[in-house]
Design a protein around this nucleic acid. Structure first.
Lengths: 236, 236
DNA sequence: TAGATTGTTAATCGATTAACAATC
DNA sequence: TAGATTGTTAATCGATTAACAATC
């Protein structure tokens, strides 16, 4: 009788654990959630700088213009981070979100193209807060190779693979003329980067093992344009 | 009896018309639709360059990786553009989408900041296809004012308002150091631009009458980062 | 006519929000 | 204890997709 109870109880516990694991493993986090985490993070970092120790979903909702219930639900996907009646610890929540996104580790960036765009990216000061750092810059123009851009000397593109492997660089940025974009993408993928950020107006293709982000100011501009014309229509 | 019939009939027609107008006026187009139109447009322009006269939703779906039914539904929000059994006329569809987005008219851009970033934007050749053209560039640095960037001389920022009004420029691009971003945004809004594209890492605020797009490579990078770590988790 | 493909309806799927018990 | 705020359930809302009659 005792034995049976024990078995049943351990069974139940095991079942619970399995169910929980299944839930976490199987649960597809909506993409929207992942898109909002960086938004929360940005405001949380600002709040921390203003010595704000705890933050409620209500207040964060006012700042981000996102529904408080949505914020709580978003966070609850990843665990229970808050205290009922109190809110979230700013510091803790920053660490949690960074961990979820993977930006608690540092990530090295290689920039390809030492022209205006490449130089601008090297000088961009928004990367550091989130653990990204530009660690190398390359060009194929012999008049540029060896010159300094920021604190890095421009390397010969022929050394790209070697340097990326040595420095364990995981992110490659394409800042070359559009016609070269796909070639550079292939080069970066061959060198082993995991993320490609393409700033040229052409779409580049990479294997499934690599994530590519084709930035495109024009698509955003077209999107914005629509709502602008809509706005004047509404007044009719 | 005749009279009554006539009245009833005209009533029905009127009712139909009113209903139709209400439907069009009240129908909120989902934001996702507007986001996809520029994607369709990009591929359509490429197809046109390859002398493709008609395109089916099936084929466009393969190219864009978007469900064909979704494409048809998206387009149907704005009218009936296709021919059953045939597909869409490439040329016609391009014009339709451009008209919906408002990119069938040309739009002038002013770039503020003649540093690396500003110069890169002036040199960006992805704008022209969609009717955008950089029409002025400004800086407050006397060593830069008067020098040429692309085909435009760098203007004194003091002349910004005058030039923007004269040239009827509707889009302002912020490419200055982050600390100046909000000031420049205010300046641009004061000069009457309708869209502000902010390339600094700080978020700028504008009145509701103006659309602002705070570009942020870091948010995109964080987003991509998440799916990268997910990917390796999946293999477990 | 037979085949293809649209525009649209109905069914499904997923994401957002309101509401509230739990609890700090 | 009273007030506040979480985590979560249930209800709502909206978007995607499958299916098909209409028709080129």
């Amino acid at each position: 009788m005792l034995e049976k109870t024990v078995i049943l109880r351990s069974d139940r516990i095991l079942n619970n654990l399995l169910e929980m694991r299944d839930k976490i493993m199987s649960e597809r986090i909506p993409e929207g959630v992942i898109g909002r985490l960086p938004i929360y993070l940005d405001f949380l970092i600002e709040l921390k700088q203003n010595d704000c120790v705890t933050i409620s979903s209500k207040r964060l909702g006012e700042l981000t213009k996102i529904n408080p219930a949505e914020i709580r639900r978003d966070l609850a996907h990843f665990g229970t981070f808050g205290k009922k009646g109190v809110g979230y610890n700013t510091d803790d929540l920053i660490l949690r979100i960074k961990h979820i996104l993977g930006s608690d580790e540092s990530h090295k960036i290689a920039v390809v193209g030492a022209g205006n765009l490449g130089s601008a990216i090297v000088g961009y000061d928004g990367f550091a807060v989130h653990g990204f750092s530009v660690s190398a810059i390359f060009d194929n123009d012999t008049t540029k190779i060896g010159k300094k851009v920021g604190k890095h000397k421009v390397g010969d593109i022929k050394s790209l693979k070697k340097v990326i492997k040595e420095k364990k660089i995981t992110i490659g940025v394409i800042a070359v003329p559009a016609v070269e974009a796909q070639n550079i993408a292939n080069l970066l993928v061959g060198a082993g980067v995991k993320i490609v950020l393409n700033y040229t107006p052409v779409t580049v293709m990479v294997p499934d093992t690599v994530k590519v982000h084709n930035t495109n100011p024009v698509k955003e501009l077209l999107y914005t344009l629509y709502f602008l014309s809509k706005k004047s229509d509404d007044k009719v």
